[in-house]
């Protein structure tokens, strides 16, 4: 399983590239091609040799995603990864995540408190209650592959959001 936490956890003493290599180093399966490919995939090409403190919040989170993907896990779990970003960066991060998702085979489980984000990113939105966490509802989102900037102002997108809001109101 790959895990992307709320705050990107990168080691300050390692460059972006060295941070992404870390999981492979620990698993003793060095693979330079995989690292290069993943850097390109998340869009950090040209920033490989930067230290984390030289990156913006959005770029740090991209690097954290790369760290979680580099050892090719079956599932990618993202725990509110964009909650610390401002709204504009956050939307940009969503578009980037969609484009990453379209290139990888992994199932992504994305935890969020933002309905728009949930609808925009997901094929299924699963509601989970507070403690003890129970699945309240599992809502399919029928947007297929139309996940781009324009859809955000499209009626079909609003309809999906309404559907989710209705379920939430009943819960």
């Amino acid at each position: 399983m790959g895990f992307v936490p709320q705050q990107p956890l990168l080691l300050p003493n390692r460059t972006v590239r060295q941070n992404i290599e870390l999981p492979l180093e620990i698993k003793k399966t060095r693979d330079n091609d995989a690292v290069t490919a993943i850097i390109e995939l998340v869009g950090l090409k040209g920033f490989e040799d930067f230290y984390p403190h030289q990156l913006s919040g959005g770029m740090k989170q991209k690097a954290a995603i790369a760290c979680a993907l580099v050892y090719n896990p079956k599932i990618l779990l993202m725990d509110e990864p964009f909650s610390s970003l401002d709204m504009i960066t956050r939307e940009k991060a969503n578009y980037d995540l969609i484009s990453i998702k379209q290139k990888i085979g992994q199932t992504v489980i994305f935890v969020t408190h933002n309905i728009e984000e949930a609808v925009f990113l997901s094929d299924r939105v699963v509601f989970i209650s507070g403690i003890p966490g129970k699945i309240i509802s599992d809502i399919p989102i029928k947007m297929g592959n139309r996940r781009h900037r324009e859809i955000m102002t499209d009626e079909s997108f609003f309809n999906e959001i309404k559907k989710v809001r209705k379920v939430m109101a009943m819960a």
């Binding site: 895990f3 956890l9 620990i26």
Partner: peptide
């Protein structure tokens, strides 16, 4: 959190 991250990567005490 950083220690937990290392554990997610399955690293032992030595690593």
């Amino acid at each position: 959190d950083i220690f937990n991250m290392m554990k997610i990567y399955n690293s032992g005490n030595r690593q």
